[in-house]
Simulated scan of single mutants.
Amino acid sequence: MSQAPVAIVTGASRGAGKGIAVALGSHGATVYVTGRSQKEGDASMPGTIYSTAEEVTQAGGKGIAVRCDSANDDDVKALFEQVIAEQGRVDILINNAAAIYDELSMPGNFWEKPLKIGDMINVGVRSGFAASWFAAPHMVKQNRGLILFTSSPGAMHYCFGPAYGAHKAGMDKMAFDMGVDFADVGANVAAVSIWMGALTSERLLEMMAAEPEKFKHLEGQLESTGLTGHLAWALYNDPKLMDYNGKTMVGADLAKSYGITDLNGQFAPSFSEGTGIRPVEYGAYKVK
């Protein structure tokens, strides 16, 4: 059985998922890298689960690639069965998988884009719920665990349209409601949501290169894809982890509180500092 903390990062072939997985690997974690991309060309963007898993191992952890379609409950069930059979536990779950199509960021109103962009609500909100559903019993039994949702300020302002907004707002609210349930049973398990900033992802860097004037405002304002992975590690190892249960936090602000620097040894820029937009604070009232 594994002695190192065991993490699952969904949607980790590229982008935020890849960065988070590699960051966790740098701390020595055993990281299950999930996604659908098994070979280059499986997606419009480069990256595979195997290349990410290799980078996790190179970073100092143990990367294990598992082909898993997060939209398929049987795939997710099989993933958790494999993790428990091989490791005996699951300590950190990063719910990052999302159906993001190129058309999402193209000009036009939501009805002028393909209906498939709505898949982000399924492979995003529901898939995060399903993965958490499979993880929760093990974490509660262990009496320790962290479920982290990757979100963004798009939960609180218009960004890429309603499908994107519903996905991000859903991440934040699920973290809160799951946190209530974990608190009710007295488990040392926390559910949190993290607002990531504009990331150094393959997709955004390609967009910036193609339209430098349009994205000029992002120069010097990017956040590494790995920052949230370092935050997940800090949270999991924080004796006061349960103080964060159910909360949505701005990643850059949390990083500053932990003293975690990012690109060029600087603290990541905080979206909230420049706009005043902050995560919603949900009410404590509970209908029984």
Rank of each mutant, 00 (worst) to 15 (best):
A166N: 12
A155C: 02
P239T: 06
V83E: 01
F160W: 15
A255G: 12
M139Y: 10
G47H: 08
G19S: 11
G283A: 13
G60I: 13
M171T: 03
G128N: 05
E281M: 07
V123N: 03
S151C: 10
K288T: 00
E86H: 03
Q38F: 00
T225P: 14
I94Q: 06
V83T: 05
D243P: 02
E223G: 02
T150D: 03
Y101C: 00
L263Q: 13
S257V: 13
D42P: 13
A190W: 10
G61L: 08
W195S: 08
V192C: 10
E40M: 06
L222W: 03
Y258A: 04
G128S: 12
K214H: 05
V9A: 03
A78R: 08
D172S: 10
N143A: 03
I260W: 01
V140N: 05
D172Y: 07
M242F: 09
H217W: 15
A99S: 12
A166E: 10
A183M: 09
K256Q: 14
T248D: 00
V66P: 00
G179H: 04
K62H: 08
G61D: 06
R89W: 01
T57K: 06
F215K: 07
G17A: 08
K216F: 05
K216T: 02
A7V: 14
A130H: 04
G246H: 08
L93N: 03
Y282E: 05
H217G: 11
E223D: 02
N188G: 12
Y164A: 10
A175L: 14
V33R: 00
N245V: 10
M120F: 11
V180M: 15
A136T: 14
P137L: 08
M196Y: 01
I194K: 09
E206G: 15
I49R: 03
D119M: 09
Q82I: 01
G124W: 00
G276A: 07
V83H: 05
F129N: 06
A131D: 08
I49N: 05
N264P: 00
M106G: 11
N237R: 12
S70C: 12
V22N: 07
M171K: 07
G220T: 02
T275M: 13
H157A: 02
A209K: 15
M208P: 13
T150H: 03
V287D: 15
L115N: 12
W111P: 00
I64Y: 02
V123A: 05
D42W: 12
E206W: 08
A187E: 01
F129T: 06
G47V: 07
S272M: 04
M120E: 13
L231F: 11
Y285T: 04
